[in-house]
């Protein structure tokens, strides 16, 4: 049932995107951390991301996911994820789905801008995209064979408080995370921090691919903070990752991140990259398909 449903969803999305207009976007370079900027209302952003991870005591892996990010309003963005992974010398498998919502509670910009984040995850134990690190997530969790790890199913609710500031071209983010496995598991906690800045603040007076203002560089740091019964840094993993995004005038955004594990519980190296494209007018298009006026 799952493959047929997702095949249908994929085909519908492709059909929609063929006739929707691409739109230039100014995307942040973060892959784990979030800033406070919402998707433009009515726009759909389709994103593909990969994570290559080294694994001690097991096989290296390549995990990947697709995101469909839609701007419902200027204060509400919703995202739907499909996750999968390939473990070298093992197998390739679909590992789950996520539905994420971000809400901007304040009307105006402030020095610190909060966003409320709520996510539901239905993933297997073989999920390795490492989109967030929480609780006592450690490298050895990913060492199990896929055939074993996929037997575990997790329904998880994740809440985040995203704080973000923009000052003189710099963006600073601070995300705190609380996640609850809906079966009988304790609340788990995590964090993500980030800072980024375009290489040039003024835009050029000519159209160009390689203008420095199209490139945003920064760094993010993320990790777990234990759980309700053992809060803190003990038996947790942490990463530091330089990040860069290249917003091309041809409507594509490329992202690259090289993550380095900061302690023995962390994967030594995570290489992430992503490709995304924003399509404006998606809401209008869907309305038109169902008989509304454009």
């Amino acid at each position: 049932m799952i493959p047929r449903f997702f095949l249908g969803l994929f085909v519908l999305s492709l059909l929609s995107l063929v006739v929707a207009s691409p739109a230039f976007s100014q995307e942040s370079p973060y892959i784990v951390a979030y800033d406070h900027y919402m998707e433009e209302p009515g726009s759909l952003e389709v994103e593909y991301f990969s994570t290559f991870g080294t694994q001690r005591g097991g096989n290296d892996f390549h995990a990947y996911w697709v995101e469909f990010e839609y701007g419902v309003t200027a204060w509400w963005t919703t995202e739907f994820y499909l996750d999968a992974q390939s473990t070298f010398h093992d197998s390739t498998l679909f590992t789950g789905l996520r539905w994420e919502n971000r809400f901007r509670p304040l009307k105006h910009e402030h020095f610190i801008n909060p966003v409320i984040y709520i996510e539901y995850e239905h993933i297997s134990g073989a999920d390795k995209i490492l989109k967030e690190i929480e609780g006592h997530d450690v490298e050895s969790d990913s060492a199990d064979l896929n055939a074993v790890a996929r037997q575990e199913h997790n329904n998880e609710l994740e809440l985040k408080l995203l704080l973000s500031s923009t000052y003189k071209g710099w963006n600073f983010v601070e995300n705190t995370l609380a996640a609850k496995n809906l079966s009988n598991h304790p609340w788990e906690f995590g964090y993500a921090l980030g800072a980024s800045r375009p290489l040039k603040l003024k835009a050029s007076a000519k159209r160009c691919n390689f203008c420095r203002e199209n490139v945003i560089a920064g760094v993010e740091m993320y990790g777990g903070l234990g759980d309700r019964y053992s809060f803190g840094l003990k038996d947790t993993s942490h990463y530091l990752a330089p990040v860069v995004a290249w917003n091309l005038p041809s409507d594509w955004t490329l992202r690259l991140s090289t993550g380095f594990g900061l302690n023995d519980n962390s994967h030594r190296f995570l290489l992430r990259w992503g490709l995304s494209r924003e399509f404006s007018g998606f809401g209008d298009l869907v309305s038109h398909l169902f008989g509304g006026q454009r």
Binding site: M38, A74, K107, H108, E109, L201, K202, E213
Partner: peptide, 15 residues
């Protein structure tokens, strides 16, 4: 924001 126009502070001040 409540009328649909997003914040554009993600564009640097000179832009």
């Amino acid at each position: 924001v409540w009328h649909g126009m997003p914040v554009w502070s993600k564009l640097p001040e000179p832009q």
